[in-house]
Amino acid sequence: MASFPAVLQSEWTKVRSVRSTIWTLALTFVVTLGLGALLSLLTNNNFKDFAGDRATPFDATGTAFSGIMLGELAIIVFGVLAVGNEYSTGMIRVSLAAVPQRTTLLAGKAVVLGALALAVSLVTAFVTFFVGQSLLGDHSTTIGSPNVLRAVFGAALYLTLLCLFSAGVTAMLHNQTLALGVLVPFFFLLSPILSAVPKVKTLAHYFPDYAGSRMLLVYEQSNQPYGPWQGLLICLAWTLAALAGGAAILRKRDA
């Protein structure tokens, strides 16, 4: 029986030995920061056009995080590849032979992936915020302003939960191509489309991406179904359900 620390060490070795997983983490940082910085600069230079309705406060924090959608894509790919690579190469059989306790194996993966995703997401969130505010000039905000620090941490938690959700879905499907074929259209096509359809948008408001994005809100709006903390709980529930589903299928299904 493999000890849990040994499982963690093994999973850490697997992740850092695969270049594609490291590159997707780096890409999460680069695209979130790069696009956020670009849009912050454009907003500052064309503030009257970008600020919109002045009846609502200008969200300088949200502007800095304008590139987080591309960051979402990169962190989703990271979660999928970190789990799916073992299935595509057949190495999952070796892993299961070394760690017959399948739930322990998946738990080890989740801890390592979650820790890596959280570390990168925290660096991404704080660097993106401060760079964005520096480019917004007189229209910037500070980390000490009401709800801003919570929104920055919320961005990091959101990316981390998306990574773990994607890992859980991949564990259920046992195929990284199929997982990407499900997750990418779901998050970037189905969810946005359903959110715009009046009769079904209430359902879409409880999808993990919409719920998680509430964590980035600095100013709560009356037309939003719930606030940041409720969004965190909903996104966390989706993540735990995906990991639990992955564990259940891993226990019953052969590699």
Rank of each mutant, 00 (worst) to 15 (best):
T141P: 07
H139S: 02
P146F: 14
A171S: 12
F165W: 14
T160Q: 07
R150N: 10
P146I: 09
N147V: 11
L149C: 01
S166H: 01
L164R: 03
A167K: 04
S145M: 13
F153A: 06
L164W: 07
N147S: 11
I143L: 15
S166T: 08
A155Y: 05
V169K: 01
R150Q: 15
T142G: 08
V152L: 00
A151L: 05
L157I: 15
R150W: 13
T141Q: 12
T142I: 06
L157H: 01
A171K: 03
F165E: 05
T142L: 12
S166D: 10
C163E: 06
G154L: 04
T141C: 05
T160M: 14
G154C: 11
S140V: 08
G154Q: 09
A156C: 10
S140Q: 09
T170Q: 08
G144R: 14
L159F: 14
V152E: 00
F153R: 03
V148F: 05
S166P: 09
F165H: 03
L164S: 02
L159E: 02
V152Y: 01
S145F: 13
A156W: 00
Y158Q: 03
R150Y: 10
M172E: 12
G168H: 08
G154K: 05
V152P: 00
T170V: 08
V148H: 09
V169Q: 04
V169F: 09
C163R: 00
L157Q: 01
G168C: 13
T160N: 03
G144V: 14
I143Y: 15
H139P: 01
G168V: 14
V152T: 02
I143A: 13
G144F: 13
R150C: 02
L164G: 01
G144A: 13
M172S: 09
F153Y: 15
V148G: 08
R150I: 04
T142R: 15
N147G: 04
A167Y: 13
N147C: 07
T170H: 07
L149K: 07
I143F: 15
F165A: 06
L161E: 04
F153S: 03
L149E: 06
P146V: 12
V148N: 09
S166L: 11
T160S: 03
G144E: 15
H139N: 13
A156E: 04
V169L: 15
L149M: 14
L161N: 00
L159V: 02
S145I: 05
